[in-house]
């Protein structure tokens, strides 16, 4: 029987060629989609923890997330067929006035790997667009990202727009270089995450998953 440890390792080291072919092999060997997903998530968690502890650099995290994403694309049809349902839908985007997307992309990929259905709205997203996407996809979580100090007010405006729509069961998680916990408290966000790996824990916590 095929050992899924190799898949975990391929994800962790960001070897996407190997990760995708091992995913396919695992499917061909009739392993359950859930067990394949679990193996991937372990790899992603391990690199995520290292990133959280500042043991690795951004490109290492980026290639692991890419390997995960491409392997997920192969696994997804089988996952869906097997009756797998994402735990919740999350909407994510960089707030209006900000075009930075590295951090947001990382969080987006990590969320996808942690059983969330992620709607990525891209960069420079207006408050209205966030609100519309939450309604359209019945999202339970919103991730707001900003890299510039000057776009932090947009974050506040977005939080206010979401709150004013009385979408009360939607949790808002914010993050990005200039953002702090006290800023999150100040603008009324439900949570703050200092890095991509913590964003998974925070998301699950806010959604009451773990």
């Amino acid at each position: 029987m095929m050992d899924l440890k190799d898949l975990t390792e391929a994800i962790k080291t960001g070897n996407r060629t190997q990760a995708t072919s091992l995913t396919q092999e695992a499917l061909d060997a009739d392993l359950t989609p859930q067990s394949i997903l679990d193996a991937m998530v372990v790899g992603m968690d391990e690199i995520g923890d290292k990133f959280k502890r500042n043991e690795v650099f951004v490109p290492e995290m980026l290639i692991a997330a890419r390997a995960m994403n491409e392997s997920m694309a192969i696994l997804e049809p089988s996952l869906v067929k097997s009756g797998y349902k994402p735990l919740a839908t999350a909407v994510i985007g960089t707030v209006q006035g900000d075009l930075h997307d590295i951090g947001k992309n990382l969080v987006s990929m990590m969320w996808k790997g942690s059983a969330l259905n992620v709607i990525d709205l891209g960069t420079n997203v207006t408050p209205d667009k966030f609100v519309a996407a939450i309604k359209e996809h019945d999202a339970k979580l919103v991730g707001l990202s900003a890299l510039l100090t000057t776009t932090m007010p947009s974050m506040k405006a977005t939080v206010e727009a979401i709150k004013s729509e009385e979408l009360s069961d939607v949790k808002i998680l914010i993050g990005g270089a200039p953002v702090t916990q006290s800023f999150a408290d100040q603008i009324g966000a439900d949570g703050y995450s200092p890095d991509a790996a913590s964003a998974v824990d925070s998301a699950h916590q806010l959604l009451g998953i773990r």
Binding site: R53, N54, E55, V56, F57, P59, I102
Partner: peptide
């Protein structure tokens, strides 16, 4: 404090990648 050093480098790398 290698951890803090990597955090600083990661900030620069994020800007580079962007």
């Amino acid at each position: 404090d290698r951890s803090e050093s990597r955090l600083i480098i990661n900030r620069i790398l994020t800007m580079i990648l962007h």
